[in-house]
C-alpha cells in the first residue's frame, strides 16, 4: 500500500481508526489545522478571528489569572492569552511547513543525484552532507540565526539548513537500491536522459518515504523553532509565537503559571500529534517494522 494510493482511495478514515494513537494524533492535527486555516483566512481578509485581538493591550486587565472572561488569563500588558495561544498555531505550523519543504527539496535533490550518479559526485555530496551532520542541530541553527540576525525568516532558513542532510542520507540509501531495478534500466534503454530517469522513475518511488519521514520530523522541527524563539532568535515580541511567549513568561514565575503553561500546551499537543501520526504512518506503510524506530 503506497501513501499516495491510500490518500487517493480516501483511506485516511481507515488510518485513523486503526489504533487509538492514530485517532488521537489525527484529532489534534485536525483541530490545529482548522485553527490555522481560520488564521489564514483572518490574515488574508484582515479581521480578528480569535476571541479577542491577540495584540490588543489593556493595562487595566494585566496579569489576570484564568477566568470566564479570559479562560487562559492575561499577560503583563493585559492581552488575552487564549487569543494569543490560538494565534500561535498558524505561526508555528507555517514555520514548520516552510522548514520541511525547504529541507525535503534540498535533501531529496542531493540524495537522488548522489545515489543515482554515484562515483565522485556521490562521494563529494555525501561528505558535504556529513559535515552538516557533524553539528548538533540546535547549535548550528543558533549559529546561523545569530550570523544573519535572529528574525523569523533567518531562523526558518537556519532550520532548513540544519534538517536537509537527514533527508539526503535517507533518500540516497533508498535510491541505491532503486537504481538497480529493471524498470530503471528499461527506461534508460528507451532513450530517457539521466535527468528524466531521476524525475520520472526515481522521485515517485522515494516520495512516500520522504512524506512519512517529514511527518515524523514535524514535531521536532516545531520544537526546534520554538526553542530558538525561546532563546531570543526567531519570532520577536509581541508576535504571539509559542516559544517567545514562554520566554516572556519566565520573568513572571512562580506566581503567574498560566503565562507559560498554555503556550507550551499548544506546542506539546501539536508536536504530539505529529509524532503519533508519523509513528502510525510507518506502521501502516511497513507493517513488518513492528513499530516506529527512528531510521
Amino acid at each position: 500500500m503506497t501513501l499516495i494510493g491510500a490518500i487517493r482511495q480516501n483511506r485516511i478514515a481507515g488510518f485513523a481508526g486503526r489504533s487509538p494513537f492514530n485517532l488521537l494524533g489525527c484529532g489534534i492535527a485536525l483541530l490545529i489545522l482548522v485553527i490555522s486555516l481560520l488564521g489564514l483566512v483572518g490574515h488574508l481578509f484582515d479581521f480578528v478571528w480569535t476571541p479577542q485581538d491577540p495584540l490588543k493591550i489593556s493595562l487595566s486587565e494585566r496579569l489576570q489569572a484564568p477566568s470566564l472572561a479570559h479562560p487562559f488569563g492575561t499577560d503583563k500588558t493585559g492581552r488575552d492569552m487564549l487569543s494569543r495561544v490560538l494565534a500561535g498555531a498558524p505561526i508555528s505550523l507555517s514555520i514548520t511547513l516552510t522548514v520541511l519543504i525547504m529541507a525535503t527539496i534540498i535533501g531529496t535533490t542531493v540524495g537522488i543525484v548522489a545515489g543515482y550518479m554515484g562515483g565522485w559526485v556521490d562521494e563529494t555530496l555525501m561528505r558535504i552532507t556529513d559535515v552538516f551532520l557533524a553539528f548538533p542541530a540546535l547549535i548550528l541553527a543558533a549559529a546561523i540565526s545569530a550570523t544573519f540576525g535572529g528574525t523569523l525568516v533567518t531562523t526558518t532558513f537556519a532550520l532548513g539548513v540544519v534538517f536537509w542532510p537527514w533527508y539526503a542520507r535517507l533518500v540516497r540509501s533508498r535510491v541505491l537500491s532503486i537504481k538497480t531495478e529493471d524498470y530503471v534500466a528499461a527506461y534508460r534503454c528507451l532513450g530517457a536522459s539521466h535527468g528524466r530517469v531521476m524525475v520520472k522513475c526515481i522521485l515517485p518511488v522515494v516520495l512516500p518515504l520522504i512524506v512519512v519521514q517529514a511527518t515524523s520530523d514535524a514535531g521536532l522541527v516545531m520544537l526546534s523553532a520554538a526553542g530558538l524563539s525561546f532563546l531570543g532568535l526567531g519570532a520577536q515580541p509581541p508576535t504571539p509565537e509559542w516559544g517567545a511567549m514562554i520566554f516572556s513568561a519566565l520573568t513572571h514565575q512562580p506566581n503567574h503559571w498560566w503565562l507559560a503553561a498554555f503556550p507550551g500546551l499548544g506546542l506539546a499537543l501539536t508536536a504530539l500529534a505529529f509524532t503519533l501520526i508519523g509513528d502510525g504512518l510507518r506502521d501502516f506503510l511497513d507493517p513488518d517494522s513492528q513499530s516506529a524506530i527512528d531510521s
Binding site: L220, G227, I246, L250, A271, L272
Partner: peptide, 11 residues
C-alpha cells in the same frame, strides 16, 4: 519526544 524541554523544565 514531543514535550518542549524548556516548558517541562519550567513546569
Amino acid at each position: 519526544l514531543s514535550l518542549p524541554d524548556f516548558w517541562v523544565a519550567l513546569l
